[in-house]
Design a protein around this nucleic acid. Sequence first.
DNA 1: TCGATTTGACCGAT
DNA 2: ATCGGTCAAATCGA
Length: 299
Amino acid sequence: MEEVMSMIFHGMKLVKTLESSLPEKPPESLSTSLDEIAKTFSDANERLKMLLEIRNSETALNQLKPVVASVANQMLMQMEPSLMQEYWLRCGGSTSSHEGTEAMFQTQLMAVDGGGGRNLTAAAEGSGASGSSTPRQRRRKDEGEQQTVLVAALRTGNTDLPPDDNHTWRKYGQKEILGSRFPRAYYRCTHQKLYNCPAKKQVQRLNDDPFTFRVTYRGSHTCHIYSTAPTASSAAPTAPIPSVTTGHSVDYGLAVVDMADAMFGSGGVGTNMDFMFSINDPSQHHQRFRQLDDGDENK
DNA sequence: TCGATTTGACCGAT
DNA sequence: ATCGGTCAAATCGA
């Protein structure tokens, strides 16, 4: 496995090299580089297949998922936002011919579309009613898309805090939820007022696993401001990319989950994708994402 | 002083 | 009537 890893990382290095020299790269040289990259990953894949034939396939897949997730995440982190966006546009811009690739990047685990006319722009209006004698307007349940992920709590430090997802959130409520041992916390984007950013999230511990949070994201960030200042080369991993086909944002880190899943299958019934991987830095605080199969422990 | 958090109340949905 | 999402005053802390 180490050999495969080494080959994959070599391929990543080639990709990085190519990226840095892309603007002034002559077409002939570009082709050579692409061939080399393709061959490297192809060799890695061949080597991998050999391993898989030897090992129990199920065990090997489980071992590989975190590896691929980590590698893919690092590759995405190394890509320039503009390149990534271009790639996204190529994949998602077509309405018919790239469904597989598009699905690979789609991170909308649970899409809920009530079809109602109301949208998130009403948020500011509601808060504006305070101080007057008229009853304040309250906007009820969001009817837009939502994404739900399971995230492992940090094993060190304050495990009560949800893992950082590179956005700044402001807590605006907490509720005891029927049937849940732990309260549900409500967060909205810190920049909601400044940028009218509609993004919100709910965080709740699972009844059967206090070290795992169920995080439900609603609305897409329009503020494009992150808790950790991105550098030119590191801005990509967490910067949402506008989805051409759906209009909502996609998180790179989450995309990695689907990427790995697309490569190795989503698993059969009762085999949730369950592996370690980090949004920000795979070498530091690993976080576990698990694709939900509409199971709901809290209800 | 100002932004974030806490928490009880309010209110829409079911 | 109950539940869950949100508001906003009170409080905290840098």
